[in-house]
């Protein structure tokens, strides 16, 4: 995914950068189809352990990451396949890892929840709620020490709002003005518990404001809103002005993990959120603006379906890790 900067022939000056909305749409589609494939594989018993899908949250995943430069880094969480893909993970390497295969990027040791991909600037998905937050904040500290201008994003869910780590890191990044963007993907539930039942105070946004961090709650189902808001936060961070906090209101279509019956959700609310699906919304806008056509989008979707299917075929029956690998990489 990249922003396109076209050069105007006459002046040689770059035109105003136009965001790659179509590219963002493509990545959202990839995530949706990827998650669907993982769901099928998990239902068929092919996935070891628990797996948490991000279908429904694609706009927050993609909108944020599209606003980053290649060298910028993210720390993800347990619902992190979308972040990994948007940050550039190879589809088959991620899928192979989720299936615990030798061919997975991490040799079948990390699975879905501990996938680390530093080559693509991803400090990893994380099995500890809030665990990735200090990793991104600390990477920012290191970057500043070496004089770099990279920006670092901490993704976390509303479930992490009550972890002390978040507040400690907001405090430290604020006093040190570190280039960090805190992104809360607020899908309304920490596991099976509604956010309102466990979260005190007048608003989530106030939790950033109390540290003097510019904080904003936005529609996390609209990739463009997410992108433009993040872009401002990234510019601010890169300019040395310190962290920002963005709360993206969103919804996980598939529940906490594959197999979650979701009987704690009200049907009317589910219906309301499904109607706000970020992908059709983005498609409609792209067509209306003449950036693509319905036919082209169909072709694009067919390409992505094939891309995912090929990856599934490649890794589904790929070899398990060799027994001799068990004790490798404990120490360097």
């Amino acid at each position: 995914m990249k922003q396109t900067t076209r050069m105007a022939a006459a002046s040689g000056r770059p035109e105003k950068t136009s965001p790659d909305w179509l590219g963002m749409h493509r990545t959202m589609l990839l995530i949706r189809h990827f998650e669907e494939a993982v769901r099928s594989l998990a239902t068929a018993g092919a996935v070891p352990g628990l797996v948490h899908l991000c279908a429904g949250q694609e706009a927050t995943n993609v909108g944020v990451i599209a606003a980053l430069a290649k060298g910028d880094m993210i720390a993800s969480h347990h619902r992190g396949h979308g972040h990994c893909l948007a940050k550039g993970a190879d589809v088959a390497s991620l899928l192979g890892e989720i299936l615990g295969k030798e061919a997975g990027l991490c040799g079948g040791r990390s699975g879905s929840m501990h996938f680390i991909d530093l080559d693509n600037g991803n400090l990893g998905t994380n099995g500890i709620v809030g665990g990735g937050i200090p990793l991104a904040a600390g990477a920012a500290l290191a970057a500043r020490a070496r004089g770099g201008d990279e920006v670092f994003v901490c993704f976390f869910g509303d479930g992490a709002l009550n972890q002390g780590l978040l507040h400690e890191c907001m405090n430290m990044t604020a006093i040190w003005k570190l280039p960090v963007v805190f992104v809360c993907e607020n899908n309304g539930f920490g596991e099976f518990t509604a956010i309102d039942d466990v979260t005190a105070g007048p608003s989530i946004v106030a939790r950033g404001e109390v540290f003097g961090i510019p904080s904003k709650m936005i529609d996390g189902m609209d990739v463009r809103t997410v992108f433009t808001t993040t872009q401002r936060a990234v510019t601010r961070a890169r300019a040395g002005k310190g962290p920002s906090f963005i709360v993206c209101n969103t919804w996980r279509f598939g529940g906490h993990h594959v197999g979650d019956k979701q009987d704690y959700k009200a049907d009317a609310e589910t219906k309301r959120w499904l109607a706000r699906d970020p992908i059709p919304k983005s498609a409609k806008r792209l067509i209306a603006e003449g950036l693509t056509t319905a036919v082209k989008l169909k072709t694009l979707e067919a390409q992505i379906t094939t891309q995912v299917r090929v990856a599934v075929e490649r890794v589904r029956n790929a070899p398990e890790p060799a027994a001799t690998r068990l004790a490798e990489h404990v120490h360097g």
């Binding site: 880094m73 720390a75 530093l118 400090l123 665990g131 937050i133 200090p134 990793l135 991104a136 904040a137 600390g138 990477a139 920012a140 500290l141 290191a142 970057a143 020490a145 070496r146 002390g164 780590l165 400690e168 890191c169 405090n171 430290m172 006093i175």
Partner: peptide
């Protein structure tokens, strides 16, 4: 600050980043 969990977590992130 006196924030051992966050500060140590940040040291880990710093180490992962070089």
């Amino acid at each position: 600050p006196i924030s051992e969990p966050g500060a140590f977590g940040m040291a880990i992130g710093a180490a992962m980043a070089g």
